[in-house]
């Protein structure tokens, strides 16, 4: 089966790649494009470690085919924040010690950013349910939820 040519946008850059039809966006990001910040924890959409934004919507990279990326805009953890400044979600994860091993962290950062983009003042319950698709085995979620709350406050302050 010949590979399929796909052109797409990743973190603002136009990229082209060839992929086998059964390869997922996660496979393409990690193995073809070298963007290994997006992690594979399960490959079945149950852990959220591969969370990415596709046309602004939060999805699991493992549950989308690479060929479906044609014409889409993808944002990965590498595309969040800027070289001179971490995104408030990233900064608060650091300040609040919201990571231990750090493996689930890229997925949480992407998911939390998506939450705050659509809901700038989430309640604790909204944060917990929004992030229920991101598994963390180290922290018990306490400090993660607090970091998202703190990032929301910080972002509100920046706007005011």
């Amino acid at each position: 089966m010949p590979k399929i040519h796909v052109s797409t946008t990743v973190n603002g850059d136009t990229v082209e790649f060839l992929c086998e039809t059964q390869e997922t966006v996660l496979d393409v990001l990690r193995n073809t494009l070298g963007l290994t910040g997006t992690k594979e924890g399960c490959g079945t959409g149950d852990c959220g470690a591969c969370s990415v934004l596709v046309d602004g919507r939060l999805v699991c990279g493992c549950l989308m085919l690479g060929v479906e990326a044609e014409g889409k805009e993808i944002v990965t953890v590498e595309g969040i924040g800027s070289p001179d400044r971490l995104h408030p979600v990233q900064q608060k994860f650091l300040e609040d010690a919201a990571l231990q091993c750090g493996f689930c962290t890229p997925g949480f950062i992407v998911a939390a950013k998506a939450l705050l983009d659509s809901n700038p003042e989430p309640t604790e319950t909204e944060i917990r349910y929004w992030l229920a698709g991101n598994l963390c085995r180290c922290t018990g979620y306490d400090k993660i939820v607090r970091a998202v709350q703190d990032a929301a406050l910080e972002m509100k302050g920046q706007q005011a």
Partner: peptide, 9 residues
């Protein structure tokens, strides 16, 4: 059905 991520698909 599923997580926020699944809801998007």
């Amino acid at each position: 059905i599923g997580s926020t991520q699944i809801q998007g698909r």
